[in-house]
Nucleic acid binder design. Sequence first.
DNA 1: AGATTACTAGACAGGTGTGTATAGTCTGTG
DNA 2: CACAGACTATACACACCTGTCTAGTAATCT
Lengths: 223, 223
Amino acid sequence: MTSHPLNSVVLHRDDPSKSALVGNVKVTREDWINAARVMLVEEGAERVKIAPIAARLDVSRSSFYWYFKSHSDLMDALLEHWSAMNTAALVAQAGMPADRITGAVCNVFKCVINPDLFDNRLDFAIRDWARKDPTVRAALDASDAKRLKALSEMFERYDYPPFEAKTRARILYYMQVGYTDAELQEPMAERLAMVPMYLLGFTGHLPTDAEFEEVKAYTAPFL
Amino acid sequence: MTSHPLNSVVLHRDDPSKSALVGNVKVTREDWINAARVMLVEEGAERVKIAPIAARLDVSRSSFYWYFKSHSDLMDALLEHWSAMNTAALVAQAGMPADRITGAVCNVFKCVINPDLFDNRLDFAIRDWARKDPTVRAALDASDAKRLKALSEMFERYDYPPFEAKTRARILYYMQVGYTDAELQEPMAERLAMVPMYLLGFTGHLPTDAEFEEVKAYTAPFL
DNA sequence: AGATTACTAGACAGGTGTGTATAGTCTGTG
DNA sequence: CACAGACTATACACACCTGTCTAGTAATCT
């Protein structure tokens, strides 16, 4: 219990200029997770390091091990946090009532662009991370399935037959997933106007048998 | 020039069981880049480390510095390789002649699913990497612009007005970008059949002014 | 055969990251 | 006021990665 000679330096935890939380020097487990989330979004899972987070919170690196068993314990918590926030929000919003399908789809868009309900950048970061970590991959696949199911059921409620409902759900969902960071900054109206335009050379209806045969003729050598 | 006492161990570079290239013990700069590319695709830019690549090539880690000035020199070469391969292939394919727009679009698809012309997984990996490195970001933006320009010009050649050509190019391109690894494994015909289906609740034509106003009413509070 | 060129192995130095041990400080409670 | 529990700082052990230095080997040219 005697003072270690090397530990005799003066501490200044209460120096207000160095305190991240003025008036409350306590750092909670949630603070660590939040700071880690920011790190994950901004830098990627690979760069979620303990020391930089500690610096951001203005506490010692070793404090981390009071709140978390290990580095991977933190990463698990991060994954849990994401699942609870994003997937739950999208599923809930897909179930919201609306007069017509247009309104229902817009509800989904509204959810996705509302940072309080759905952290789009976090979703991106998790998708990145999943490509390198099988555990995350499994969690993401499960969430994707849940979200697609909710969207598909939404289309079915507006009398789309099952296959078409499923297809529309997929396209709606993966159009979101496909956006780049830059595009997510664009005005919502522009993105919405772009979506219903026809793709490829088809002329605005479901492909006829003849057109489908034409496509197959083009692609057959590669299938 | 005298033998260092610690370096007197017997070398066995020509041990066939340890040689990655049987009959040719030489490792070239291309070999390093190729191995690094595999690493980049499978593990992400962050995990392209010299030692594991050396192990895969079954050579010493220090040999690396004969071929490359530094680690970032290798990464530069990787970026250069990607640009030359993928962007060049897509631009070339978009310029190929075809009877109708359907054929032209299928040409693009054929290019993108042909691993000899276009490494889709590499494209993904670069996109990941760009999110963390401004230099790569700039290179990717330049490539995206080149590709979109080529696709847009393709649509214009089939008499689409400029704005619509540009929009179709964007959707066609980002539908590709949005695919997940799993989906890229799906049969081409299914993906092609899925694409022209209408999105959202719109009924198969460009949105009318009334529909556009409806969308704006839904989204106005969030813009 | 000797010299030159192309290429490689191993040791080392320095930086950065995780996890642990230890010696504290602070706050609330009896 | 003394003590217990919550929390934090510093130091250290260890692992891994980059980059440099030195002493080589193997094939080719002269």
